[in-house]
Design a protein around this nucleic acid. Sequence first.
DNA 1: CCATGTTGCATGAAAAGGAATATTTTTAAT
DNA 2: ATTAAAAATATTCCTTTTCATGCAACATGG
Lengths: 171, 171
Amino acid sequence: MLKDSGWPSMAQRKSATNGRAVLTAGDGFARSYLAYLLARASFNVSNEFHAMLKTWRMTVPEWRVLACLTDVEGLSVGELAAMALMKQPRLTKVLDRMERDGLLKRRSTASDRRRVALHLTAKGRTRVAPVLLAARTHEADLLAQFTSTERATIKHALDLLIGRAGRSAAD
Amino acid sequence: MLKDSGWPSMAQRKSATNGRAVLTAGDGFARSYLAYLLARASFNVSNEFHAMLKTWRMTVPEWRVLACLTDVEGLSVGELAAMALMKQPRLTKVLDRMERDGLLKRRSTASDRRRVALHLTAKGRTRVAPVLLAARTHEADLLAQFTSTERATIKHALDLLIGRAGRSAAD
DNA sequence: CCATGTTGCATGAAAAGGAATATTTTTAAT
DNA sequence: ATTAAAAATATTCCTTTTCATGCAACATGG
């Protein structure tokens, strides 16, 4: 099932753990399905860091919100939901918790009073700062395993996937 | 923040929606952080298909379990959890529902009576069959947007990421 | 064998998430 | 203006997930 849909062949690998052995065995779904490979790659990369978040007593959605708002202040709820890959009702609840904890503020917008502009508080910035550093370090460690050519390949692949996946070819 | 950790530069893009415009603006977190780009790529690729799952009244974890067990019969709970990128207690409860719905069976193992071997029922196979076809089609449509060179790049990048992420260089 | 530790899975209370819908504000059409 | 439609966020009800822990079966060292 799902054997070959235009992929080039992939070299076999082995691993010590039971789970890994199964994962890399055979040639079905788990070895060739694009969505699965992407999910696994994402999982592998994010997982270690997510474990580190416990050190800071920070949840994953909290981290995402803080990181996004560090990037772009004043996002609306909808914009942040899109950026943080969450659906809006979920984000609203995450924001409730974070606002209650004093990490951010909701400000109503003058021009469109339906919109809510989100701003980190000083407390929020203080909270996210060390985690951002850890994220940078973690990423650097990961990327250091690759040659610059490999890094370019990865970046190019993600560019392709983010650019074209999930919309028509004309866009 | 998180500006540059060894990435090659990425061309700018624009998009119609508000969310997208924010996503692709600037040069922070959302444009350069590997974990984020991977999560977004995975999200983009999987999302449309996950929406289709509603057509079959199938949840995402149910789909993952059915797809994995289609690939490899007789997996243990732990193996399946690793393969389906879920933690074990969650999988146990997903399995409870699916077993109750007659989609699979738990069989105790003779050699190690702690282990539980998982097997699809005929009903489970019937249920997953059309979804597997849809998955193949969806993937083929997606991959058709790329040249074979681009497909090779994507595959190679995923191979690199899955091979090396989340473990030491020596493994 | 027995004690001790470990592994594999299940469970239970508490928190979080999802789908549908409500509410308020804006936009558009007449 | 007025009414209808759309958009942004919040809310509600119900299901699912999580975290911690429990329990049984295996492994190992004396």
